[in-house]
Design a protein around this nucleic acid. Structure first.
Length: 264
DNA sequence: ACCCCTGTTCGGCG
DNA sequence: CCGCCGAACAGGGG
């Protein structure tokens, strides 16, 4: 589930712990979510540290703790976060739990495509500063979009919209939503978009990102019924505009749903 | 049993 | 060297 909006939702699930100290940590050290991270150091440094702030950029999250400690989280395909009672007992897929006096901050990820990273230092870790603009920021503008489309001109637009180096936080369902709204066929090469289509792509990208972030919840149930997301996985799913049956194919390596009538 | 999956990385290849 | 593509990762669900 986790794309930009869900990531933001899950990030906030830990906000109740801000200002509070970590008393104890539970984790499954040998699990893939800790690849590249020394969990002994993570445990040692975070124990006793206070959670200060958190931020999300695209699908990535950064949690800042006292004593110059930083925790990076990525939810992968199946990651979730929650705040639980302080006597929370981790189950099989609860790979990382920070216990505070009054609650437990839980990171769960069955498929383990997600990731837990740790950094100790005065400033945010190097991997946090990747230079990719947030979609809702002014830095994601037409010149940036046009340059990005040109650089990836030989790829189908669906694949381009999935690239985190340009469309920070956009995943499969948001990409389909954006292209449907912009009325662009997902298989069209980036170089083939007209100026008008680039305009629509820009507007749709901003709109879907902003609206999703505003409406955020643990799933898609709060999103408007007029959005494509409610139809895209259903057998016989129809275009919300004029009820044409949606088409499906693998494009850019991912299952893609689109309306053959309005997306050209 | 078999197939599918809202993500990312890596090696092959053009 | 650049960049696209498919495979691999791991587990749950239809």
């Amino acid at each position: 589930m986790p794309e930009l909006a869900e990531v933001e939702y899950f990030r906030r699930q830990w906000s109740a712990g801000i200002g509070n100290r970590v008393m104890k940590i539970a984790h499954h050290a040998d699990k893939r979510v800790f690849r590249g991270t020394d969990t002994r150091i993570l445990r040692k440094e975070l124990a006793g540290a206070r959670l200060l702030t958190s931020e999300a950029r695209g699908k990535r999250m950064l949690f800042r703790f006292s004593n110059e400690n930083w925790l990076g989280l990525h939810l992968g395909m199946s990651g979730k976060m929650q705040t639980a009672r302080p006597d929370f007992r981790p189950q099989k897929h609860d790979h990382f739990v920070l216990y505070q006096r009054e609650r437990a901050l839980v990171f769960t990820d069955a498929r383990q495509f997600g990731r837990v990273q740790f950094h100790h230092g005065k400033t945010a870790p190097a991997w946090w500063e990747n230079g990719v603009p947030e979609i809702v920021s002014a830095k994601f503008n037409r010149p940036f979009l046009d340059r990005f489309l040109h650089r990836h001109r030989k790829a189908p637009i669906k694949a381009v919209v999935l690239m985190q180096s340009g469309f920070s936080g956009i995943g499969n369902w948001m990409a389909d939503e954006i292209l449907w709204r912009a009325q662009i066929s997902p298989s069209k090469l980036a170089s083939k978009l007209s100026a008008g289509e680039r305009d629509e792509l820009f507007r749709a990208t901003k709109f879907v990102a902003r609206e999703s972030l505003r409406i955020i919840g643990p799933d898609d149930s709060a999103l408007p019924r007029t959005w494509l997301i409610h139809e895209r996985w259903r057998a016989g799913g129809k275009c919300p505009r004029h009820k044409t049956v949606l088409r499906r194919a693998t494009i850019g390596g991912r299952t893609t749903a689109w309306c053959p009538k309005c997306q050209k």
